[in-house]
């Protein structure tokens, strides 16, 4: 009896394995085809000096493109910008998103209304968000100047680096905070009520309960939210394209890459930048996982 059970079990598991591979293969193949294949192509092109406007002059230059990019102040400035945007927006979103999540968690009325509303920024096209905020900050057609105290009515937000960055980050934060709030709300639901009650009975203050009970229990949700949003913010492109087109040094690393490839048709150095961008995303992801000790199993949703 025991042998036949084992045989049947291993038969079944072999069958399961085969079925699983069949089911998984098309999606995995396609994912690799649309990302790994172009990436390899980029790697190849990055060794050439190659401009689409002078295709006959394509020549092999080895690692020159990487040397040019990595020794160029512009590359580092734009990387700095990108990291700055990532850190500020994720930090602000985390705080506001947590506040929103707390409110939604406590809310006993109009839950549907709030959840519907909060999905609207999430669903709105980033380009539309960019335009809405660009016009809102505009000194000729906007309303921000007249609503903010201490800001003169003809203050031009898009005239300097600092204020342009504020406008870009406001648009980014507005659109993505709801996503953060919803992830954190789901995390809040995981905090055991009885632990909170016990802490209350023990006389813990609100602040103590937040730091000792709520946040530690939400750790997984927070870390996953931070990881996703940080990598998303690192790719920022749409808002910058729409709002400043890179003026006042507000370029991100994605924008720089786009400009080399699509506007200047410099496929060689552009491909080198594409490879560097990809590598830098890996580095950022690695750092976040290490520094915040994100459990990748959480991210992969493994129980």
């Amino acid at each position: 009896m025991s042998t036949s059970t084992v045989n049947r079990a291993s038969d079944r598991s072999r069958g399961e394995n085969r079925l699983a591979l069949k089911l998984v293969a098309p999606a995995v193949a396609l994912m690799l085809l649309v990302t790994a294949f172009p990436m390899l192509r980029a790697l190849y092109l990055s060794f050439f000096s190659y401009s689409l406007t002078a295709p006959d002059e394509r020549e092999f230059v080895g690692l020159d493109n990487y040397a040019t990019a990595l020794t160029d102040g512009l590359f580092w400035r734009d990387t700095g910008n990108t990291v700055f945007i990532m850190v500020v927006t994720v930090a602000v979103e985390l705080v506001i998103g947590f506040a929103f999540a707390m409110v939604m968690h406590r809310l006993v009325f109009a839950r549907g209304l709030v959840r519907t509303s909060i999905l609207i920024p999430y669903g709105i096209i980033t380009v539309v968000s960019g335009f809405a905020w660009q016009f809102a900050f505009s000194n000729t057609n906007g309303f921000v100047n007249s609503w903010l105290p201490f800001v003169s009515s003809d203050f031009n937000w898009f005239a300097s680096y600092e204020s342009s960055m504020v406008a870009i980050m406001v648009s980014e934060i507005w659109k993505t905070t709801p996503f953060m709030a919803l992830l954190l709300l789901a995390g809040l639901a995981q905090v055991p009520e009885d632990m909170l009650e016990a802490a209350k009975v023990d006389g813990a203050t609100w602040w103590q309960r937040l730091w000792k009970v709520i946040l530690p229990n939400m750790r997984a949700a927070i870390m996953v939210a931070v990881l996703f949003r940080a990598l998303d913010a690192y790719r920022i492109f749409d808002n910058i394209f729409v709002m400043t087109a890179g003026a006042n040094n507000t370029e991100s690393i994605s924008f720089l890459t786009y400009r080399q490839v699509i506007e200047q048709f410099q496929l060689g150095i552009g491909s080198a930048l594409s490879v560097l961008l990809f590598l830098s995303v890996l580095v950022v992801a690695f750092l976040i996982v290490k520094i915040f000790r994100v459990n990748l199993a959480d991210a992969r949703q493994e129980a």
Partner: peptide
């Protein structure tokens, strides 16, 4: 792949 920087793909895709 969900975290892939899409801008990285644009150049090679355009060329292909």
């Amino acid at each position: 792949i969900a975290m892939f920087p899409v801008v990285s793909l644009v150049g090679p895709l355009f060329d292909m």
